[in-house]
Every structure is written in C-alpha cells, then in structure tokens.
Design a protein around this nucleic acid. Structure first.
Lengths: 145, 145
DNA sequence: CAAATTAGTCAGAGAGCCTGACTAGTGTCA
DNA sequence: TGACACTAGTCAGGCTCTCTGACTAATTTG
C-alpha cells in the first residue's frame, strides 16, 4: 500500500540495489564478519575518529546499540577505541587497517554501480540526478557534515 | 566510511527523512500499533490481496518472517487472510479497513513532503529527479510490477 | 499415479534495538 | 568554590525481527 510509485519508494529501490551489491562484493572479498547494522555505524566513522554518541545519533540508534555494535566491530578488528584527549569521559572510535581495506572494496563497487547507472541514464540525466539529490540533502539531512 | 558522498547515501537520506515523517504522522493519527517491519510488508499488499510467499519475496524476507509479521498485523486488525480460490494451499493476505485508513494518512504525508521537495528543488529539477529515478528502476527493481 | 515443486507452518536460536537505571567527568553560575 | 545540571558511556533486561531447519498439505509434471 502507501501508493504505487511515490518518490520515497523510487529512492529506496536503487539504494537497496546498491547496498546489496556492496555487501555481496564485500562478502566475496572475505569481509563477511560484520553485519549491515555494524556497517551502518562503520560508515560514519570520520578519518580521525568519532565519538560513540555522535555515531549513535547519525546512525539513528541509541547509544547502547551503537556501543554494542562498536564492541563487535572492535572484536572483529575493524575499529579501535582511543581516549578522547579533549574529554576524559569520551573515547574516539577509530577505523583500523581492516576497515580501510574493506572501504576500498566497497568504494570500488560503488564506483562500478555508478558507472552502470550512468550508462543506463546517460551522462546528462545522471548529473541531474546527483544535482537534485545534493540539493535535497539540504532539507533532509540533519547532520550535513 | 564507504566514501563521503556516493549516490547511495544521497538516495538514502531523503528516503529516510520521508519515512520518518510518515511514521511520525501515522503515530500522531493513532496508528501506533505497528512497526516499520510490519509496514514494509503491508505496503506490498495489492488491493485484491497478495500471497504470503509473494509478500516475502518483495519485502526480501523469508516466508517465516513474513508469516510472523502478517500474524501481528492480523492481530492488530490491519489485515485478514482469506483462502485463495485458485490454490487451496495458499491464502491471500488482504488489507482491512484500518489499513486503508492508515494508507490515507500516509499518502497525505507523502504528498505533503513531495510538495516541500518540489518547492525546494523547483518544478524542473523535481521532474528530472523523478524521471531519472523511474528510469533507474528498470535496472534496480527485480519485481517491477 | 509417482516424483518434484510450491504454499505455508512450527520450533528454536541469535542479532538488533529499546527503555531504564547507573557511573564518571564537564560546564555553569551564584 | 561548590552545588546542580548536563553529557559520555556502560550495565541489565526484554521485546522484535529475522534466520535455519524440518515438516505438512496441495499442486504440477512426466
């Protein structure tokens, strides 16, 4: 229900297709020891580390959930936690070597899929699509890094 | 990680923003007795009913999961199950009155959000966005009803 | 009609995510 | 400077979602 072709569904379909491709490629490359939920958190880690609370907000889960997921990522060797020099309560979650390696694989697949999309849409439409989405982000992304 | 602004993320952000708005509005209207997972299944129910297996495929979950979710929707009064006249093994999941009422609320919010987006992007860009997404669906939606 | 397939259920388990309650460190301001 | 409000993160417990595996009943195929 909820209408046959609203823009929401149209946005979701290609997103999911892309995500599926990325996960399949990661699994094939041997990165099969993390879950989609963990990946969603991992995506948000800044190059110089990010606080747990911030990660939780951006991934739209509670601090507890984020903490749990980071625990697992830490065990699997994807991230480390280091003390935040500016606040002794906090710790920074940092990506480890393994995480950057996985990111490289993921990025390659994303680039490949984007090429396929561009081929299907044509250069002009692809540009228009990205342009519209980037504009849309202004009113739909509360974090807007 | 997974790159700073790939098209996937750009697609996801407005999708999630829209979904959040719809859920908030439904909750406010008193439809707070179903979960996102249940909604994802409910969305796929055709006006004249849909089989469980088909629902499961489209929502990308197992038959068991779909069955579980439909059970709950049935208990909450959103759907009913009727025998499929063409196959005595199967039953059709049908939306009940309550589901159509919820759909009306949801549709109204979607329309409202789409108006807001159009206002932000301008008519031309909004049209281009939808055009590109509809084209993209051809290569990213395996069900393509 | 026997064999293979398909619709759906039952049982059990693990992951994900939440609420509530808590500890420890930080900022504010009288 | 010391009480108070706030923020970072953890602990405990529980509910929801989703899966795998095994099964029954009806349908299709050869």
């Amino acid at each position: 229900m909820e209408s046959e072709l609203n823009t929401g569904v149209l946005l979701f379909l290609p997103y999911r297709a892309l995500e599926n491709r990325v996960f399949a490629a990661l699994a094939e490359a041997g990165f099969n020891d993390f879950t989609p939920a963990q990946a969603r958190v991992m995506q948000r880690i800044a190059p110089d580390g990010t606080r747990l609370t911030e990660l939780a907000e951006q991934a739209q889960v509670t601090k507890q959930t984020a903490g749990f997921l980071v625990d697992q990522l830490e065990k699997a060797g994807y991230v480390t936690r280091v003390p935040d020099p500016t606040d002794r309560r906090a710790r920074l979650v940092r990506g480890a070597e393994k995480a950057w390696a996985a990111k490289e694989v993921a990025d390659a697949v994303v680039a490949e899929v984007e090429r396929e999309w561009e081929e299907h849409l044509g250069k002009r439409r692809m540009r228009q699509l990205r342009e519209a989405l980037i504009l849309l982000r202004e009113i739909t992304d509360p974090w807007q890094t």
